[in-house]
Design a protein around this nucleic acid. Structure first.
Lengths: 238, 238
DNA sequence: CGCAGACTTGAAGATTATCAACCACCGTGG
DNA sequence: CCACGGTGGTTGATAATCTTCAAGTCTGCG
């Protein structure tokens, strides 16, 4: 039964810490389904309307926007326990959701959520916290792209991902698996893949971090943090 | 009585269109206060905690972030009928809120909102729509900075502001008052004020728009929209 | 083996930033 | 009334950052 799996997942994730047994029980009424997507498949396309919310179970997602001129901007890479799809009031989606790795998600129809919410308001608090957090992440991303150099930007993003993964237990303090290609990194950072490549080389040469073979190693957390002014607070606010 | 003024304001704004008389009545219980801030004053400082939400009545606000290196990024310039402060789950604020012009706002303590919400759930829908909209605006801003040239970026922002003001009736289709300095524009766009100056000159020379003496005139909406791929949908989703 | 995708490097060009002036406007105080 | 300082805007010259174009490597895989 997928509701059981879902409850188990929630209660063992950062989201669940604030929920009582009783509130967890309310999740039974949600008509949740679990889906596994292949790597690099589109889940919802920008412009479509979609009335589901998604909770990442495992894998890396990708919320992005394709521009008329062929460029694209990655808004966020949702990770396990992240919630997507609460943003849109009316179901219309301005950006696409896709998978980067194989992606296992829980899907909840919007309307069933409304019902559960009305008789267990604590769930609402959890959800608005979750929205607040995703929001803060996007704002941070905006600041990052707007006012930091390529080097700082890259460092900041890789530090953020480390913290977000660690939150869920998928990263040791200074090493984690990162499936992003340099091309995807570029689209997240507002740079060219070529420049990302050079930036990563510089970070390596300065012995700050190494990103190779799908793994990021933070060699000097302190210097990295100092360099880009990373403040992890926004990651933790569940 | 300020609650009366508030209700009047809401019902005549885009926010109020979806509210019944009865729901409007629920606003009475909110212990709203109205405040007028001088131009260029800080209302809440980043890092502080603050448990109010703000609804802009008149004037231009400014949500921004100061970086350790002295730079700053403007996240958004809230305009009349925009709601700020719902983002943070726990009251902590990652960014500052300040006024650009003289700014008249309604302030509502967070906790009184919770009460009103629990017995008039329709208000919740309005609020989450509002959050969704502010969110969409920030995402758009992210895309703008991440993947558009200085010229496109500037055009996009000025088009957005035109639409947001028009939504509230403060802009004719192709002309509006804009109190932003070139310096502030730069901090919003992730550029230097000097480059903003040159970009505005180019927009002027190409006869696309003129920004002078505190007024923006859109000379060729069609070309502007085509150039930067502006799609106003996200502005309208109340 | 050969191909495709991701990564790497060099050289050249475009965009944007920095530095340094200078102008125009406006409110203030003498 | 005028001198003054401060803020915002404008311009030119130069430099840094980032992009583009072009090519080449490495790896995994049918």
């Amino acid at each position: 039964m997928t509701a059981t799996r879902f409850k188990h997942f929630i209660s063992s994730s950062p989201l669940g810490e604030a929920l009582s047994e009783e509130e967890l029980g309310a999740l039974d009424s949600l008509s949740i389904s679990a889906t596994l997507y292949d790597p690099h498949t589109i889940i919802t396309r920008q412009g479509d309307t979609d009335h589901r919310i998604f909770i990442i179970h495992s894998g890396w997602g990708c919320v992005h926007r394709d521009l008329p001129n062929g460029e694209r901007q990655i808004i966020d890479t949702p990770l396990p326990s992240d919630i997507i799809g609460l943003q849109a009031g009316d179901g219309s989606r301005g950006n696409s959701l896709s998978s980067i790795t194989a992606l296992s998600v829980f899907e909840i129809p919007h309307h069933t959520l409304g019902r559960a919410l009305s008789y267990k308001p604590a769930l609402g608090r959890i959800l608005s916290r979750a929205v607040a957090r995703q929001n803060a992440i996007v704002v941070e991303h905006l600041v990052n792209i707007g006012r930091r150099s390529a080097l700082e930007r890259t460092a900041h993003l890789l530090l953020e991902l480390a913290d977000r993964l660690a939150e869920f237990g998928s990263a040791t303090p200074d090493r984690y698996e990162c499936p992003l290609t340099q091309d995807e990194l570029a689209d997240a950072l507002g740079l060219t893949k070529i420049h990302v490549n050079r930036t990563l080389r510089e970070l390596r040469e300065r012995e700050l971090l190494v990103f190779r073979n799908g793994f990021v190693e933070l060699l000097n957390r302190k210097k990295l943090i100092g360099m880009c002014g990373f403040d992890s607070q926004y990651v933790r606010q569940f």
